[in-house]
């Protein structure tokens, strides 16, 4: 039985254009201005990132709520060798960040230089990009808030 032919590369590529709806549209609009907004659920929880619905019940959420660009790391994982698609090219941490004023945590990255600086419960501050377009990557990363 002859063997299989040589392998070939297959690239699946498309620049998806996503309509985001009113709630995320406002969140992304605020990010473009360098601010972070969540949304309040009917039970009073503040979701960041905001959603059109309460993740626990499916009920529609209410009014937007401004939250701080500082918060607490509730979980983190250290990446020594970033992948090409990762937001940072230098070693960094993935983190769940609960912003001050929010009841849920946002997944993003922390630029802490080295793993030894990472700790659950540490305070971080968002670093915004200079050129913002209204998307999640307008937050370049979070960084340790060491001044406090």
């Amino acid at each position: 039985m002859s063997r299989s032919l040589q392998e070939a590369k297959h690239v699946l590529e498309y620049p998806y254009r996503r309509s985001v709806g009113p709630v995320l549209g406002r969140f992304f609009g605020a990010l473009a201005e360098g601010r972070i907004e969540g949304v309040r659920t009917q039970t009073g929880h503040v979701l960041v990132p905001p959603q059109e619905y309460d993740p626990q019940t499916g009920e529609a959420t209410g009014e937007p709520v401004a939250v701080a660009s500082t918060g607490v790391v509730t979980a983190w994982a250290w990446v020594d060798r970033p992948r090409p698609k990762h937001p940072l090219a230098n070693p960094f941490a993935w983190a769940l960040v609960q912003l001050d004023g929010a009841d849920t945590a946002l997944l993003h990255v922390v630029d802490a230089g080295e793993m030894a600086r990472m700790k659950t419960g540490m305070r971080v501050r968002a670093r915004f990009r200079d050129e913002r377009v209204g998307e999640i990557r307008d937050i370049a990363c979070f960084e340790p808030e060491e001044a406090r």
Partner: peptide
């Protein structure tokens, strides 16, 4: 194009 809604919407 339902540009007014997200997929969840």
């Amino acid at each position: 194009k339902r540009i007014d809604v997200s997929m969840p919407g």
